[in-house]
Nucleic acid binder design. Sequence first.
RNA 1: CGGGGUGUAGCGUAGCCCGGUAUCGCGCCACAUUUGGGAUGUGGAGGUCGUAGGUUCGAAUCCUGCCACCCCGACCA
Length: 490
Amino acid sequence: MSKGITSRSEDYSQWYNDLVTKADLAEHSAVRGCMVIKPYGYSIWEKMQAALDKMFKDTGHTNAYFPLFIPKSFFSKEASHVEGFATECAVVTHYRLKNDGNGNIIVDNEAKLEEELIVRPTSETIIWNTYRGWIQSYRDLPILVNQWANVVRWEMRTRLFLRTAEFLWQEGHTAHATSEEAVAEAEKMLEVYADFAENFLAVPVVKGIKTANERFAGAVETYCIEALMQDGKALQAGTSHFLGQNFAKAFDVKFTNKEGKLDHVWATSWGVSTRLMGALIMAHSDDAGLVLPPKLAPIQIVIVPINRGDEELARITEVVDKLISELKAKGIAVKYDDRDTQRPGFKFAEYELKGVPVRVAIGGRDLENGTAEVARRDTREKQSVSREGLADYLEQLLDEIQKNIYQKALNFREENITKVESYEEFKEILDGKGGFVSAHWDGSPETEQKIKEETKATIRCIPLNNPQEDGVCIYSGKPSKQRVLFAKAY
RNA sequence: CGGGGUGUAGCGUAGCCCGGUAUCGCGCCACAUUUGGGAUGUGGAGGUCGUAGGUUCGAAUCCUGCCACCCCGACCA
């Protein structure tokens, strides 16, 4: 089908790698585990950022920026937090290089830092150390801050976008006067993420809470959105944490409440990362390349002229220019590819690979008939459309494509949530069709751990508003009040 | 970090066992003919063979270290 892309059925991982590199999204860098996000890939990320940033602002948040480096002592103040991240931290120990006299640049051992700096794997500690100075009274609360930043987690195995040593993300850090308010904030941001995932990424998600095993290091409760990829593996697409008073206690952040009493501040943090790029790719794309939802596509419509000679091209361009101004007036990102160095068939394949939602081809025949050939990326259907009202038609088509790819992903997700009643059945589904497996669990971390060791499946979440029903744990046979969602995950 | 594999032109590769300065395809450049699904012909450019050492008259080839990537494990967004 497509040149140089491994098919999904042949090798799903390789298909993913091929897509990321061939569609010019990212490439491996000279630094182990770190990627270069290429202009086309970064354009998509910028669209995600813009949409999310607006949603954050609309819910009352403001952006700020905190340092890349965190003093080691800050980092160790919250016990479970440091334990969770200790094994994957990059540490800065020196601040100078020197010439060793033989023309080699070496670390200057004279320039050792008195206290090592951790390259942030997340910023709770530096932020809460800072918040201490910002908060004295309930009148200073809430603090609703977000930062767009890079973070570093020294991963053993990396995959472009899904897991890299350095990645880009946003992290919201809020401070509240009451537990209820902080919980409400964490839940609100989970809703924002779910809204973004479904309406922009066109990826349906399950909202839920994490079990103790899967909880963020330092959190009291971790909320998450979980998405299902085409290969039947789950992907955590975003998390929102209720941090209780853990960081306030660790950093001694107190405030005087309305009753005049001192209390520790209540906290949340929440984040999504460039991993969403991975979700976007794996949720919709096919063997011909990327399939981008119109709302995140850097190019929403590409127009390709099909001409014999310059004279005909000029006549086509005249028609196209008019169409472009109509589309731009509607706020649609349109590109006219009139390069004469590539032939139309090449361009068709290229824009399919890059996931451009709609392609419009206009040739000599169309000039005569007053038509254009419109091809949609999601279904790969082509049809001839009258130029009369074409801009309106295309605008609606983009909406329809956005809805269609969401619906397609939703259908897939629904077909791949399987209820099971026994451990045998559980293993059979995991090894066969995959996807989410809905099963009774006794609620113990030990059972969860055993299941993970034996099947590699983890509890992705306990869905919000989960129906309560009596049953028995598929593993231990102990009584259970509800089903939880298991899956193999990225 | 453990096990396995791979690194030769921008990309994909042959050559390596058995040492003598590198094969083919795509891409690139020029010109011509082409243009409704990845054009064709002719000519041309491009390589410290991942990297640093070692063995040798001579290393892509043999030996050692290092680096990167891929697959599988442990860890994680």
